[in-house]
Computed example of a mutant assay.
Amino acid sequence: MTDHYTATLDRIVDETTAVLLLEDEGSVVDERTVDVERLPLDGRHDGAVFDVELADGSLRAVTHRPDAERDRRERLQDRFDRLSERPPDDDS
Rank of each mutant, 00 (worst) to 15 (best):
M1Q: 13
T2Y: 09
T2E: 13
T2A: 12
T2I: 12
T2G: 05
T2K: 11
D3Y: 08
H4C: 10
H4D: 12
Y5L: 01
Y5F: 15
T6Q: 03
T6C: 00
A7H: 04
T8A: 09
T8D: 01
L9S: 03
L9N: 02
D10P: 01
D10W: 06
D10K: 09
D10S: 08
R11D: 00
R11P: 01
I12S: 02
I12K: 07
V13W: 04
V13N: 08
V13E: 12
E15L: 11
T16I: 11
T16K: 06
T17N: 02
A18D: 05
A18S: 04
V19W: 04
V19D: 02
V19M: 06
L20H: 05
L20F: 02
L20C: 03
L21I: 06
L22Y: 01
L22R: 02
D24G: 03
D24T: 08
E25T: 08
E25M: 10
E25H: 10
S27M: 13
S27C: 10
V28A: 12
V29S: 05
V29W: 00
V29T: 12
E31D: 06
R32K: 15
T33D: 04
T33Y: 02
T33G: 01
V34F: 00
V34A: 03
D35L: 10
V36R: 12
E37M: 10
E37T: 14
E37D: 12
R38E: 13
R38T: 14
R38Q: 14
L39W: 04
P40S: 00
P40L: 02
P40H: 04
L41C: 06
L41F: 12
L41S: 09
L41E: 11
L41W: 10
D42F: 08
D42W: 09
D42E: 10
G43N: 03
G43W: 05
R44V: 04
R44S: 09
R44N: 06
H45P: 07
H45D: 12
D46F: 00
D46A: 12
A48D: 03
F50V: 06
F50T: 07
F50S: 01
F50W: 11
D51G: 11
D51L: 11
E53M: 14
E53A: 14
E53T: 15
L54N: 08
A55M: 14
A55T: 15
D56I: 01
D56N: 15
D56H: 14
S58A: 15
S58P: 01
A61G: 13
A61N: 15
A61R: 15
V62L: 15
T63I: 14
R65V: 01
P66Q: 01
D67W: 14
D67I: 13
D67R: 15
A68D: 04
A68M: 10
E69K: 00
R70I: 11
R70G: 05
R70W: 05
R73G: 02
R73K: 06
E74Y: 02
R75Q: 10
R75D: 11
L76G: 04
Q77T: 05
R79N: 05
R79S: 04
R79F: 06
F80V: 08
F80L: 11
F80Q: 05
D81V: 04
R82I: 03
L83G: 05
L83E: 07
L83H: 05
E85C: 06
E85V: 08
R86M: 08
P87E: 07
P87T: 10
P88F: 09
D89N: 11
D90N: 13
D90Y: 12
D91I: 12
S92Y: 13
